[in-house]
């Protein structure tokens, strides 16, 4: 029973840890499927986390905060689109520039509004839903934030359906594989890429806001700490398929949650706990090597499109 309980709490924590990364990774999937690598992901999550917190604090409504995070994420996505699609500049540099810009903006506004106090300001975060609370184990696993339910049950299936079962998704994949042919077939390459990057930014912003509005109820400098880069790796690991990306996010969430549980139990381990923190990154690199040969990058990734 103790073992079963351990597994149930671990499963619950896995879903929580996976949620923000999965949201961002689904966003990145849209961007890359359309042919744009968006390294602005880390900064977009960071500014999303701040904007969500700040607006929720000002307005007193967590939902308005979430909406603000999604809005600011969309704006950053459109900025990325302007740089990479309209201007056609180097996508690595443009994305990192957006990460730096968004990070600077968030820290600037945070310092301006909350000063440099050592105790981070906090808000009352989202409450978890607890369906089947009386059922042992299952009740523990299902005790999750609404946003986690939405992510796993709505956003991932919807993303899959959009990409593979609608003409919009076909257009996204077409402009990411062969923009010349897509253009010849009458698809507006620029407009589709703008749309994909806007969706991507919105999801990244929401992912960041999940951390500040649900998981922490606060904003800290280390709130994202590399989760965006993990999301980028998950997209490749998941071969640009939302369902496989979900699987990858569960593997990452699982290792991370295991480390948290072991630390919380105060077990004296012969190896430093950082080993567990670093493990998912190492596993991802190994997975990239194994999957690397078969990885089917969108053919037009990193290539700006110009109508000659």
């Amino acid at each position: 029973m103790i073992a079963a309980m351990f597994i149930a709490t671990l499963a619950a924590a896995t879903l929580r840890v996976a949620t923000p990364i999965l949201l961002a990774a689904i966003g990145e999937t849209f961007a890359e499927r359309a042919g744009v690598l968006n390294l602005g992901i880390e900064g977009t999550m960071f500014l999303g986390a701040f904007a969500g917190f700040y607006v929720a604090d000002l307005s007193g409504s967590l939902w308005i905060g979430l909406a603000a995070a999604i809005a600011i994420g969309t704006v950053l996505g459109l900025l990325m689109a302007f740089l990479s699609v309209t201007l056609g500049v180097n996508q690595h540099v443009a994305g990192l520039g957006i990460t730096l810009l968004a990070g600077g903006l968030a820290l600037f506004a945070f310092r301006l509004n909350y000063g440099g106090s050592s105790t981070p300001p906090s808000i009352e975060p989202f409450e978890r839903l607890s369906p089947l609370a009386d059922v042992p184990l299952l009740g523990t696993i299902l005790n999750q934030y609404a946003l986690t339910y939405v992510t796993f049950l709505v956003i991932v299936p919807l993303a899959w359906w959009l990409l593979y079962r609608t003409s919009f998704g076909l257009k996204i994949r077409a402009v990411g594989e062969n923009p010349e042919a897509a253009d010849a077939a009458g698809i507006n390459v620029f407009r589709i890429r703008y749309a994909a990057l806007a969706i991507a930014g919105a999801l990244m912003g929401a992912g960041g806001a999940f951390l500040s509005l649900a998981q922490l109820g606060a904003f800290t400098h280390g709130i994202i700490s590399g989760r965006g880069w993990v999301a980028i790796a998950l997209v490749i690991f998941g071969n640009w398929n939302p369902l496989k990306v979900l699987l990858g996010s569960l593997i990452f969430g699982g290792t991370f949650a295991l480390q948290l549980r072991l630390q919380a139990m105060g077990l004296q381990l012969p190896i430093p706990y950082e080993t567990f923190l670093a493990l998912p990154y190492v596993v991802t690199i190994i997975a990239l090597v194994i999957a690397g040969r078969q990885a089917s990058y969108p053919a037009a990734l990193l290539k700006p499109y110009r109508r000659e």
């Binding site: 690595h92 590399g226 880069w229 980028i232 080993t275 990154y281 690199i285 090597v289």
Partner: peptide, 25 residues
């Protein structure tokens, strides 16, 4: 092996921070 260097170098950046933290602590 044609593994994208952008992703692996980003990941190794995170890994070494954990190593530094483990050694310093």
């Amino acid at each position: 092996f044609r593994v994208d260097e952008v992703v692996t170098t980003l990941l190794t950046n995170s890994i070494i921070l954990f190593i530094v933290s483990a050694i310093l602590n």
